[in-house]
Design a protein around this nucleic acid. Structure first.
Lengths: 336, 336
DNA sequence: GCCGTTTGCGCAAACGATTGATCAGGCGTT
DNA sequence: AACGCCTGATCAATCGTTTGCGCAAACGGC
């Protein structure tokens, strides 16, 4: 409510003096006595800079938007926290939005960056969206950083998906498994491709011949994990272990195994790439490879800040910390 | 990018004419020919009203904030969708924030309503926060609607918690259970109190004597459910069924039962108040009483809009649709 | 005592949209 | 021909901040 002029009147100085003091303008020549009076007056009237006035003048809002496929999916919890923490550290506010609402021709982008509500966007595209079409709708409409996936003309940040899947697979191999299935995301999904590559690399390194029948591409949701598992278990020689490309899919894997009367981990071991708090509450609790998603969020927000400030397009990979195996109870040596 | 003056220049009219045409001002006297020219020009240059300019002049942003304890908890999924849908329907944008960040003396409120970033706030207080302290920090700082809980001076919206708990308890009674435990939220939590009251009412109506030993007040999180269950199962006469005051707590109930080797629903039935997609993926899938949380969100957003427009403080309860029992696999008749 | 420099501060013009007040013609009436 | 009135459109002030520039007063050097 209180504005600059209120503070100015109370301190007996001009509006511009107040502005300079409060924004800490170093080039301002004002006596320490005046500065003190201004600060005191500002405190007394409870001054808060008006967002609209400031945004109008500066042509920037210090708001960034994070758009994820599903705000309320626990998979995005760490990412969200990372983006928000980085935003706050930079004096920004984070606006969270669902990419669900993004479809009709980029109306959401118009509304956010087109109207100048936000300085830029961190976007995790929904799995299976066509990059071409997305690039079309997003256009060069404003500063953009994508997550997990590149888009022409925008910065991007990824995590070491291949390495994570590799660690997961290695864990199973170390336990003695030789027939290992892969419950992957959609075949078009870049993350799913990378994770599949890591899975394949681990097998190859262990001298295990690849078997395309053991690799499925159903998707990242719970029913997709179920379908993958049904497919794998119907094989003449079903796997003794499964690498699930994501926690939600892994929950589906567990459900399907249970439905078919298979004991986990006794008759089927399950390990998931990704980690989320839900993984500790499944039955049995899921062994996971934790990806640095919090750091992904921070990195993405930082990258966006640089783009907003006119920096060049960058493509980053978060290598630190490395994906780490979190052993719970869903993996065990295969039955003799 | 394009502004009013660009459109005006292209259409050969004044800025004010453009503003009036585009905002559909009925009191404007402009020929249809001019209107058409303006609309055409606006389309050609891709005009979008600048958010800051508009907000500055109108002293409103058409942004509302939804503050929940944990953005990424699936419990809040329906609520979030409800608030957002209502906001969008009213031409607003929703800003999602964590109430986690709310603590230090209301800095978050200052940042949101104090700086005029949002027109108002829909707030679900974190469980266990002191209403007095919260009221203090929120003050009359701006339009506010609270969820599940009243705060002096603010509108509020609730759901029929008592009725939901009652339906859950009745379900167990109908199955033949007589010793029914209650795994509640914190004793200070208004929702927990209402749900406990509904539980008690159902017992009384069935002529079952209340037993305070069967009622626990640990909290709404997963470990709280575990603790409640451990407490209940340690009783000389443990219950054959449990009403969990919330899905997360119910997950803990399931975990503890499993840990103690109790079959669900064979030896212990579990029903939860609340519903979320996670409830369908537990083992066994949870029988729940679904509360109208989506409608709660819509109602809250609508109430906030009225407060923003200068309406009076209201206290609403969402009675439609009624809480409904969703039968899954965690409940069964007690063993003889 | 004069001049150049520094210090301390205020003036006023933006930023983009909205809106009450105003103005120029055209037309009908007296 | 003088007058008022309606139509169609513009003028100009306003919202609250920021910032380049200007203007005094004080100060130091000669």
């Amino acid at each position: 409510m209180a504005k600059l002029s209120d503070v100015a009147a109370r301190a007996g100085v001009s509006v511009s003096a107040v502005s300079r003091v409060l924004s800490g303008d170093p080039s301002a020549r004002l006596s320490e006595a005046t500065r003190e009076r201004v600060r005191k007056a500002a405190g007394e009237v409870g001054y808060h800079p008006n967002f609209a006035g400031r945004a109008l003048k500066l042509a920037r809002t210090d708001v960034i938007a994070l758009i994820v496929p599903d705000v309320t999916n626990s998979l995005f919890a760490d990412l969200t926290r990372g983006v928000e923490d980085e935003a706050v550290a930079r004096g920004c506010v984070m606006l969270l939005a669902r990419s669900e609402d993004m479809h009709p021709g980029g109306a959401m982008f118009d509304r956010l960056v087109g109207e100048g509500r936000v300085d830029g966007i961190v976007l995790q595209p929904r799995d299976g969206t066509d990059p071409e079409e997305l690039a079309q709708s997003v256009g060069g409409r404003g500063p953009l950083v994508t997550i997990h996936q590149r888009l022409p003309g925008a910065s991007s940040v990824v995590v070491p998906d291949a390495l994570a899947a590799r660690r997961a697979t290695e864990h199973l191999i170390a336990l003695g498994h030789r027939r290992i299935g892969f419950a992957g995301g959609l075949a078009e999904s870049p993350t799913a491709q990378r994770r599949a590559a890591g899975y394949a690399a681990a097998l190859e390194e262990a001298g295990i011949a690849p078997d395309t029948g053991l690799v499925t591409w159903r998707g990242y949701r719970e029913p997709d994990g179920r379908a993958s598992t049904a497919e794998l278990l119907a094989l003449p020689q079903p796997p003794t272990a499964v690498v699930a490309a994501n926690v939600n899919a892994a929950v589906g894997v567990l459900a399907q195994a249970r439905a078919q009367g298979l004991a986990v981990p006794g008759e089927l071991s399950v390990v998931a790439v990704h980690d989320a708090w839900t993984a500790a509450h499944t039955w049995p609790p899921l062994t996971c490879v934790k990806l640095p998603l919090y750091e992904l969020g921070r990195t993405a927000a930082a990258a966006l800040a640089r783009v907003v400030d006119g920096g060049p397009v960058e493509h980053l990979s978060v290598e630190d910390p490395e994906p780490v195996l979190i052993t719970r109870e869903s993996t065990a040596p295969p039955r003799a």
